[in-house]
Amino acid sequence: MESYSIETRELNFYFKDFKALSNVSLQVPTGSIFGFLGPNGAGKTTTIRILLDLFHAPGGSVKLFGKSYETARSAILKQVGALIENPSIYKHLTGRQNLEVIRRMVNVPVSRIDEVLRIVRLVDNADKKAKHYSLGMCQRLGLAAALLTDPELLILDEPTNGLDPSGIIEMRELIIRLNREHGKTIFLSSHILSEIEKLATDVAIIDQGEVLYQGKLDGLRQGSQLTELRVELNHVATAVQVLKTGNFTISEQNGQSLILPIQSRQEIAHVNKLLVDAGLEVYGLSTTAQNLESIFLNLTKKLDQ
């Protein structure tokens, strides 16, 4: 039987009258890199704050390692390291001193600071004031702080946010290394699909506070029988209007063509008929297997909004 590091059941959360989370149930397998994917404002950070006991959900339950915060808060947080949104760093202190502040709270040996600095490759800059750090270095320092207690679970909220391409690659390699070499379970939120695609073994997609998919990343591809239809024609803008009226979702468009997900071969004929009846000239129709991005867009319908 698979064991779960995180299990939530029917979490609901409100900001005044706005429902930010609606019946969010997650199961994060131990040892996985769990991608928590969703557009900005979907409820990712709110979920993470509940997972870390920073927000209290009025409905539902949260269990980490099978324990709940009501009975075992300190024991749970000892096994969890977190990096939430923007780095939390005392800019007037050096990297090493920042870690010392946390070390004093969690009571681990001083030698652990050097260990985590080595893991995140920040040894050379450890004695520099954090105000002189680049964003990438700040993120790595945040990760070092999260690793101080040698936790079993790392919760990382958009860890590549704001990083340059080399910083993103470095962070990605670090996350993979922490999972494979150090055996950490990693809960990773992102709004960037390609990021999750490169890292995650398991994924949950959230939009408007609701979990739309949860399971293996491959399952997301296999579960989708969809294909994409590329239509070349003379007036793309008019075609978009016509197809939206016909209840189709447009995933991409440019000056000469548009792309939309379709469920069956019959829909190709239906699309063609709609466009021709609207007086548009259709120059070409071609289908391709749908990529993960289209599946995500189709699930969240973001492009359509």
Binding site: R73, A75, L77, A82, S88, Y90, A145
Partner: peptide, 18 residues
């Protein structure tokens, strides 16, 4: 404000202390 300015309230409250 040392916590607000450093964005560290969430850091210290996520530590294994009550």
């Amino acid at each position: 404000t040392i916590e607000s300015n450093s964005n560290t309230w969430k850091l210290i409250y996520a530590q294994p202390l009550s």
